[in-house]
Amino acid sequence: MAKKDITEIKKIENDIFELLKTVMDPEIEIDIINLGLVYNILYDGEHNVRIEMTLSTPACPLADAITDNVENVLKARYKDFDIEIDVVFEPLWDASMISEEGRKMLNM
């Protein structure tokens, strides 16, 4: 596959960003984008995507359910892509990372 140009890369990264809005945190009941769990979406222009994300707590028992969900929604749209999900705890997630929309959903 030929390497895509920067406009195309940004377009796909934006599409992934929108797709991840369908991934819910099952306990908090809002999506991981508005919750601020996704730190970075990196597409290399070929077929590698790396999602840098965190969890609301390092001891989260739903960790795999959330990362599996991310992988499944991306694979459904981008079948040939290699998806790498990097769960990081630096910086540690806190409430300030929740978006305005997320705050409304949580009545904060």
């Binding site: 009941e29 739903l62 599996d68």
Partner: peptide, 17 residues
Amino acid sequence: WLEKYQDKVGKYHTPLP
């Protein structure tokens, strides 16, 4: 929920716990 839906999230419409 983890037992029943962990392998189904993102593929099907799953309920909340």
